[in-house]
Design a binder for these strands. Sequence first.
DNA 1: GTCTATACTATGATAGAC
DNA 2: GTCTATCATAGTATAGAC
Lengths: 204, 204
Amino acid sequence: MNDRSALLPPHLAAEGTRRRILEGAVRLFATQGFHGSSMRELAKVVELQASALYVHFPSKEHVLAELVRAGHEAHQQAIRAAMLEAGTDPVAQLSALVRVNVRLHATHPHLAIVVNSEMGALSPDLAAPGLALRKQSAALLLEVVERGVARGDFSARHTGVVVAAIGAMGLRVPYWYSPQSGPNIDELVETHVELALRMVGAKP
Amino acid sequence: MNDRSALLPPHLAAEGTRRRILEGAVRLFATQGFHGSSMRELAKVVELQASALYVHFPSKEHVLAELVRAGHEAHQQAIRAAMLEAGTDPVAQLSALVRVNVRLHATHPHLAIVVNSEMGALSPDLAAPGLALRKQSAALLLEVVERGVARGDFSARHTGVVVAAIGAMGLRVPYWYSPQSGPNIDELVETHVELALRMVGAKP
DNA sequence: GTCTATACTATGATAGAC
DNA sequence: GTCTATCATAGTATAGAC
């Protein structure tokens, strides 16, 4: 987790105070958790009175919901773009998915942590859209791997476990990676691509 | 996460009401988080009044601390036993570490989730012992992999990233795995061993 | 849009009877 | 060891002035 990395994806539709609130919230929620952060704390970070927050968001939960929504949207958009460029080769498709997933998690660690760790604090209604996108991404990764196995490009046997493991290593990146004390982001990404290809048993 | 799996490791030194409190707490903290659970909720789960909890633990934080302590101790004990049986072969050592790590996470999912997700809620004093054990386990895994590379058994290049990825896939197991809807635990464990060996580029 | 003031509730924790 | 009753504080959220 690096303090200088982008807090929010660049295309997030929020400006001025609303954006500053979201930036404060993503840092607070990532480090202390949603339930471990209060509206008063958030107000202090953004240099407002707590009551002023309610002009921009109807509740604390809606602040989290907006972060989770933005995170999932950025993720889905990145995946979609990557897949369009990847062609039909399973090796290229898997590489593209891992590449974009790890890069996003490494460049937006706070948001990734909030999306991954704090989504359970949302009511079912507010969590549903994110869960749907998540399911979709997982299914896409599984399809790519199973198609690779069917074509003979990959040799993995328990594809469900392999896909979970590939997802896991990307998911955990924001919890340990720092561009200061490790490889740069390009090396991190390409190492993960190489790992994923080994995990599915891609023909060398 | 499976409701019927063991909530606490069998050797935990707690009986009677104290143990029931810890069992209720590990379920509550795993599903709602430490800050998302109240002492009144915990009391209701254990069928006590909230004030009775303070006879057994001086504070809510100490309940969490005891869970975290027990989790780390069980983990370290299991790793130690596995390494003693593994001999000097890096392949056998890495296999043993992954095997025991994944098995523990799969058989005690609630405790694993609490240890991994809620430790940040502890004050530095109460978190320190756990952090030390964690660092030790991570260092051991890194040593095994680097020794394997030095001996020519493994071919991995960025060992730090590879070790983080191997740890990540084990860490995430309790968040997705269910013995009902997937492979049994033995298959899960052996699949992870195979994945880890592929990740480090073990000679076939 | 932001402020001050405040309502209302939930929370961690304690006191004292049994 | 557990109960009822209670305290003190912190929490989310609202009202109304500017």
